[in-house]
């Protein structure tokens, strides 16, 4: 095809997709009002997401923290500031790595699983079956998953950061001999709850919305065949990773001056 036409088609398709996704989100949000009475559905989904992602979050958090400890120590030591290692580790995790890496892992693990699950429910007519039983799948299946993703993401990101700090301490204090008191007290005085912790949490809530939104939308839109579902799963991971990185840049620029 003529490249110009290809570009035009690509742009139009993307904008249409974005429009459909927005309408879908509106529908899901208005459908989630009913979840107040069926909060058990949300709890179930938070649990499902938690089971999927907790282990990978804990392990990754530990290693990222340990790497931060190593790298940070060698750099800081050049300026004789190794005592600030705790501050460096904590700030990097709470502001950036916690929310971002958690969101990326979440997209790969829980997001893809969500898309596949919803896509297969569509392919096997389970969603159509629900509709015929006068149950709205948007309210019953999609909305609880979106809300669960939004709840789970900040919890997981906080967990990631906490484990990461412990990992940094393990290397910094345990292996490289940074003073334990300095490590913790510098962290305590340097990390602000409002500026750093809260902004990190806001980031991860935004990531939770975006990643779960993409995941459920792709599942719901998927072509109901095995190939269609596998493509949708793929798109979920790619789109949500890109969205997370781009949004992270924008939010960082706005939040931390």
């Amino acid at each position: 095809m003529n490249p110009l036409r290809w570009l035009g088609k690509y742009v139009i398709d993307s904008i249409q997709g974005l429009g459909r996704a927005s309408l879908f989100l509106l529908e899901v949000v208005s459908g989630s009002r009913k979840l107040v009475r069926r909060f058990d559905l949300v709890v179930q989904q938070v649990f499902a997401v938690g089971v999927l992602t907790l282990l990978i979050i804990v392990v990754s958090g530990l290693f990222v923290g340990m790497v931060l400890g190593l790298q940070g120590y060698h750099t800081l030591a050049k300026f004789g500031a190794a005592d600030s290692l705790g501050l460096l580790v904590a700030l990097s995790l709470v502001r950036e790595l916690g929310p971002v890496v958690t969101a990326l892992l979440f997209a790969g693990r829980a997001g893809s699983a969500l898309t596949a699950e919803i896509g297969l429910m569509k392919a096997t007519e389970q969603l159509a079956g629900m509709e015929m039983m006068a149950v709205n799948p948007i309210e019953r299946v999609i909305a609880p998953r979106l809300v669960a993703g939004i709840i789970a993401m900040p919890l997981l990101a906080t967990m990631f950061s906490a484990i990461g700090v412990l990992g940094g301490q393990l290397i910094g204090v345990g292996l490289l001999g940074v003073d334990s008191g300095a490590f913790w007290s510098q962290m305590q005085s340097g990390v602000s709850f409002h500026e750093d912790v809260l902004n990190g949490v806001i980031k991860s809530i935004v990531f939770g919305v975006v990643v779960t939104w993409i995941a459920v939308f792709q599942g719901h839109e998927s072509v109901p065949t095995s190939e269609g579902v596998s493509r949708a799963t793929n798109r979920t991971v790619v789109y949500s990773s890109l969205a997370v990185l781009a949004l992270d840049f924008i939010m960082t620029a706005l939040m931390f001056k």
């Binding site: 297969l120 429910m121 096997t124 007519e125 389970q126 159509a128 079956g129 629900m130 509709e131 015929m132 039983m133 006068a134």
Partner: peptide, 17 residues
């Protein structure tokens, strides 16, 4: 409300897995 009064048996059953 109308659908509550009609049932449909799908070609493949469509049970919730």
């Amino acid at each position: 409300a109308l659908r509550k009064r009609m049932g449909m048996l799908f070609q493949n059953g469509a049970l919730l897995t």
